[in-house]
Design a protein around this nucleic acid. Structure first.
Lengths: 232, 232
DNA sequence: AGGCTAATGTCAGCTACTGACAGTTGACAA
DNA sequence: TTGTCAACTGTCAGTAGCTGACATTAGCCT
């Protein structure tokens, strides 16, 4: 259009589209090979060969083997952050987080499908959870996301994360719960987006009751809770 | 002696002691090189050369570069689990966790010193936090520890982790907070055991107040809290 | 002393990843 | 259309983490 930015390459060029296609093909080939024969059993050479490019080219698109594994996850996380930023400013922290995740899950399906089949994403998720090296990488990424979320929450509440510990503490607790939810889903049988949404929602609703001091003599609590003080 | 177990090697032999010395020397050399010149900039060959063994021998003691990095951390975590198991059975979950960490920190110093100088451990901790690959590994290890803790808590309370989500949820929140505490300590200036104990304690005491719905119009809350229900 | 076996050294090889350089191809102007 | 530039790609050589196979050393035990 009227966009004269001659910086690198125009967004609609043939070259740009070709690049995007190569990138998507690499992601898809990699995830398919990973889920079929395992992450470590798959070599970069195999992935490159499947897309008919050189190994060197693979490393020009992804700086390492792990990066291609989380390429789709990147999209998902970006989407969550968008949703969080879109929450009304007067909403309290926990409900905002809760709302953002649930809304995000509702829309993520389509975003994923533009690159790979949804079920491949699901299998990838499970493969990550069962590959130690990828679990580690996954957790690290999650942590970086946490920091961004904490900053967002702090800004919403007009706080400084380095002064008031509550944003980081809340986000730490929140994402700890999110991780457990994801793991439980991965170990289950229902490979649908609806299922993970369900688990997420349920677990988030347990975070309050769980920190109660006395768990005994109660059923699974739901909303009302009395909170005893911890003794020194 | 009167010990006829001909299985592997008797626990007091020269061979056994030599092995232990080699192992400790490898740990120490590795951590010193890592903290001085960086983790990635240090090769296994350098470590092996510093202890005057072959590279192959290094890999017979540690299955990979990361393992030697966390050898000391292994001790620390084992100690925490011991302390947790030693807590009185009638103590509620969160106080038990809190008590175990704080007690553990009080005694860990000595345990570490038997292998490496304490300040080397401190510098190692900070190096880990500033090396992405090690952060990832650290988090994964932490997660595995979490699962063990959740099982312990569940047993204490007579629950099944696969039925009642509260043990995992509490532990997730708890260790999320622990991780943030460790990170904050690593970024600070006071490299003492007392300091991390301090931060840990303070953060654990914030976990309850942090999940309150309304943070505004309050100072840093301490114990009393009203908990509004989240809207659907 | 001498045999057994755990510990170690040596070597060859695989895979992830990188730098350097050369060849190819899309973009854009003349 | 054609030529030039820049981006993209391929090839090659090399480093480092890590493993298996096999020979050698050295503590242990009779």
């Amino acid at each position: 259009m009227a966009d004269p930015t001659p910086q690198t390459t125009p967004p609609g060029g043939l070259r740009e589209r070709k690049k995007q296609r190569t990138r998507d093909a690499l992601i898809r080939a990699a995830l398919e090979l990973f889920t079929e024969q395992g992450y470590e059993a798959t070599t970069i050479d195999e992935i490159a060969e499947a897309v008919d490019v050189s190994q060197r080219t693979f490393f020009r698109y992804f700086s390492n083997k792990q990066e291609v594994t989380f390429a789709v996850q990147d999209m998902v996380e970006a989407r969550f952050l968008e949703e969080l930023r879109a929450r009304p400013a007067d909403e309290p922290p926990l409900p905002a987080l809760r709302g953002a995740v649930l809304t995000a899950w509702d829309e993520i399906g389509n975003a994923i499908a533009s690159v790979i089949p949804v079920d491949l994403y699901m299998r990838t998720f499970q493969m990550i959870e069962s590959t130690p090296a990828l679990v580690a990488a996954h957790l690290r990424r999650f942590t970086e996301l946490e920091e961004q979320i904490a900053q967002l929450i702090a800004r919403r509440e007009g706080l400084d994360v380095d002064v008031d510990p509550r944003p980081r503490v809340l986000v730490a607790a929140f994402s700890g719960v999110m991780r457990v939810a994801g793991k439980v889903w991965g170990e289950g049988h229902d490979c649908s987006v609806a299922a993970i949404r369900e688990v997420t929602q349920s677990y988030l609703d347990h975070i309050g009751p769980a920190i109660e001091t006395d768990w005994r003599g109660k059923g699974t609590p739901r909303a009302g809770h009395e909170h005893a003080r911890d003794q020194a």
